[in-house]
Design a protein around this nucleic acid. Structure first.
Lengths: 217, 217
DNA sequence: GTATAAAGTTAGACGAATCTAACAAAGATA
DNA sequence: TATCTTTGTTAGATTCGTCTAACTTTATAC
């Protein structure tokens, strides 16, 4: 069993590496909310436990074992988010905080039951994949809305870096996962785009927004 | 906010004092699973925080503030147990372990939602009262089955010191909370009693068992 | 009512996770 | 290339919760 602190570093390591490819100590320290020397010593500890490959001054990298452990924590996090939304009626912007704590609960039966009650979901409420029991994560690559040309219609299937703020923004525009978005026009000079979907006939998204919406054609 | 360790001592303090009246350090140490010196130092720390009244060599006693905090932790524990049984389909003998961990989750919204989905229950799956939002616990005194005379019929409404072992024993005899139990006869020499209820026409309980079943006439 | 046993406390150490201050390496800049 | 800046590491201290060993107080037994 791993400590709470260890689990948080493992998770951060996996999240950062799948976002940026490489992980650096500074970023890690800001994600886990500690100072750099603390990160260094934790990385060294994880390396002793064969969870991380580590050489001084080089970016730390999860071992296969480390990846699996991290994925299993993320599995618990995402299953819980799904449960909170689907079975308890929370909004997708409310569940991160709670799942952040529940992911450290040790009880295979609890999460198995949740998985079963949810019908073995493959993605969480924000469209991120839920790793399987063996800690295998099936990352499906989705293009960003910002990469599409006017005229295309695509389904909104995921979010890059979903923060509560951004989710509240999407709520305010009534944009939900699964919506069919049609691009009406794009502005080259600032990358903003005008789109339509569901109840919204005409809505303008900044480049920043369009870059955080993942789609499927 | 209190640490995990602090919360565990508070809870143990309230549980022991409602069972035995007075709490002693040795018992406390066995309940929380630490050695006596650790308990002493924790008690002293809780006293500094005005959660416990403490004088050397005297039994520690929760202050009003301490009682409230402890009750709020027990509230979370029992709400969770109820949720696990009612909404997730767990057996009453499986839920303690999980609730033991979830009781430390900090999220008013999570427990409020649970309470709401459960319809604001007053008791947990073992018949123990669930403290209210203000940390008030309505301890209703129930007599034990062992105190009843032959011929009486009473409803089984609670358990003294419910352990998973005991709950599995009750499962094996198909005795559920709410059952109407009729006492057929009692044996004076060993305190055992023969009873009937629901599907069971004739079942014999030892004194030990009869003393752990709470009833209402 | 003294001796012994049990319960409780104090002192001091330790591991985990954190910090600050000082130093070292790598990367960027002129 | 030499210098400066950024990033990362080492050393050493701190806090929390725990321990063991030794001591003290209270309770029990004779």
């Amino acid at each position: 069993m791993y400590s709470l602190a260890e689990e948080n570093y493992l998770k951060a390591l996996l999240n950062l590496s799948s976002e940026n490819g490489e992980v650096n100590v500074k970023e890690l320290s800001s994600v886990v909310g500690t100072k750099m020397p603390t990160v260094t010593s934790m990385i060294q500890k994880l390396a002793r436990k064969k969870l991380v490959h580590y050489e001084s001054y080089k970016p730390p990298k999860l071992t296969e074992k480390g990846k699996k452990e991290a994925a299993l924590i993320i599995r618990k996090h995402r299953l819980m988010e799904m449960f909170l939304v689907q079975k308890m009626g929370f909004g997708w912007e409310e569940v991160h905080e709670i799942a952040e704590q529940i992911e450290h609960i040790h009880s295979p039966a609890f999460f198995e039951k949740m998985d079963e009650l949810l019908g073995y979901p493959k993605i969480d409420p924000h469209g991120s994949p839920i790793p399987d029991r063996q800690g295998r994560m099936h990352w499906q690559h989705h293009p960003k809305l910002s990469e599409c040309k006017p005229g295309t219609t695509a389904q909104f299937v995921g979010i890059v870096n979903s923060s509560d703020d951004f989710l509240r923004f999407l709520n305010s525009r009534e944009l939900k996962l699964g919506a069919k978005i049609t691009i009406i026009e794009t502005e080259d000079f600032d990358g903003s785009m005008t789109v339509s979907y569901d109840k919204r006939k005409k809505e303008t998204f900044s480049r920043t927004v369009a870059e955080r919406l993942l789609i499927e054609k």
